[in-house]
């Protein structure tokens, strides 16, 4: 576990009571949708997928801003072929820059711009709740159709909050044990934090906290155990819990697949998540292992523009179209 997973940081601040409060309210939000790419582990292609989805969307005539939220380890600008920008999120968070707009830097790709991540992790580690609220409000008001959040590795509370605040949460995973382990840890953190942030579940908050500690003494091992306990306390809370679960619909992209068996791992993860967490993960696609990507990365050029006719870019485009069409809205029929 990361050092940041301390219980103090996991205290649920008031602002996050419903991180979705601004979602789907066009009156407040200029931005149509926020897509967040996370996945727990480093090196699973979060930045590359972020920049590729961003480029793909921008080519569909959408105004896109890619935002590097890999706080402390920002390198999204490199995957987009942009030099390290002068202005970054740190400036906005610290108040040096009053308007988030001033942190936007253009890229060489039409319709696509970038907000670089904080360079110094310290500013971000101590993000206060007010700062976070201010940040989210500023995000939603940006002049763009889509925002792409490139999340950092790990499961720090900030990262999970950014993931949950997005309309579409995408988990990038490799068909490898280490990546799967971290992806599940990420999923678990997001899952419990989502439940924990639900005001109607306040009276069972201590139970959820217990379940979050995997070595708890009450023997609450799985979400199903938790549900049983919650239901025993209050059937009303049980219903709320189910509602929250139904609203949690992360997407899955399997990266660097080499074989048919690799591809099928995505379906298995989907099946396990359904039975274990009770959630419907949408397995939106997979990306081939492709060495040309590494060539592009070395040249500091986005591979989407470098190899527009490759299979990989075809897959990215298909995933983008799918997500674009489907969007992040949870259909009432799913509830």
């Amino acid at each position: 576990m990361e050092a940041s997973d301390t219980s103090a940081e996991w205290n649920i601040p008031e602002w996050s009571i419903d991180p979705f409060s601004t979602a789907g309210q066009p009156s407040i939000s200029r931005v149509r949708e926020i897509w967040a790419i996370g996945g727990g582990k480093g090196g699973v292609g979060k930045s590359l997928i972020s920049s590729s989805l961003g480029i793909s969307l921008s080519r569909m005539h959408q105004k896109v801003i890619a935002i590097d939220l890999d706080l402390g380890g920002a390198n999204l600008h490199t995957t987009l072929g942009v030099d390290l920008p002068q202005q970054s999120l740190s400036d906005f968070i610290s108040g040096r820059t009053a308007d988030l707009k001033d942190c936007i830097v253009p890229t060489t790709i039409p319709n696509l711009s970038l907000i670089s991540g904080a360079q110094d992790a310290v500013t971000v580690m101590h993000l206060s709740n007010e700062q976070k609220t201010r940040l989210f409000e500023a995000f939603r008001k940006l002049d763009a159709d889509y925002l792409i959040f490139d999340l950092g590795a790990g499961t720090s509370a900030h990262t999970i909050d950014f993931f949950l605040a997005a309309d579409v949460g995408i988990i990038s995973m490799l068909p490898e044990p280490t990546s799967i382990e971290n992806a599940y840890r990420f999923l678990k953190s997001a899952y419990f934090r989502k439940l924990r942030g639900c005001p109607q579940l306040k009276n069972v908050a201590s139970l959820i906290d217990t379940a979050m500690d995997s070595k708890n003494e009450q023997g609450i091992k799985s979400p199903a155990d938790l549900f049983r306990e919650v239901n025993a306390v209050s059937p009303e809370a049980g219903m709320r819990m189910k509602e929250q679960i139904a609203r949690f619909q992360p997407k899955l992209i399997l990266n660097q697949v080499r074989t048919q068996t690799d591809i099928e791992v995505g379906f298995s993860v989907k099946g396990v998540s359904k039975r274990y967490f009770g959630i419907d993960i949408d397995y939106v696609g997979y990306l081939d292992y492709d060495t040309t990507v590494w060539q592009a990365v070395r040249r500091k050029r986005p591979f989407v523009t470098e190899f527009p006719n490759s299979r990989l870019v075809g897959s990215i485009d298909r995933i983008t179209h799918y997500l674009f069409k489907k969007g992040g809205a949870v259909k009432p029929t799913d509830l």
């Binding site: 569909m60 591809i263 939106v284 075809g314 489907k326």
Partner: peptide, 20 residues
């Protein structure tokens, strides 16, 4: 076309790029 993962709502049917 093994990419077509979920048959009913496949993300993989490419439509010409156009504004939404």
């Amino acid at each position: 076309r093994m990419e077509a993962l979920s048959a009913a709502e496949s993300p993989f049917d490419i439509t010409p790029r156009q504004p939404r």
